[in-house]
């Protein structure tokens, strides 16, 4: 697990401490994240990495797993 994926895991755990993200292949269809969680997650990622993820990138497909979130962050220059 890289530092980036560890950080994403810890932000997700802080966001939804009651959820088990490790067993999910799609956080949205499994009901682990909803639209307001995604908003909170983007705000946390913006603050953690000093970036501003554009609203047009706040698409469900970018928040289905740690891998898709890491790919999105890569677009903003956050190295995995």
């Amino acid at each position: 697990m890289t530092e980036l994926t560890q950080t994403i895991h810890s932000i997700l755990a802080e966001l939804r401490p009651e959820a088990d993200f490790s067993m999910s292949v799609d956080y949205l269809t499994d009901g682990l994240l909803d639209s307001t969680d995604i908003v909170s997650l983007v705000a946390s990622l913006d603050a953690r990495y000093g970036i501003s993820i554009e609203g047009t990138d706040i698409l469900p497909e970018h928040f289905t797993s740690v891998a898709t979130i890491a790919r999105l962050l890569g677009k903003y220059g956050v190295a995995s």
Binding site: S35, V39, G55, T56, I58, P60
Partner: peptide, 8 residues
Amino acid sequence: MDGIAVLN
């Protein structure tokens, strides 16, 4: 409201 769809 579908929040993410509206946001997009």
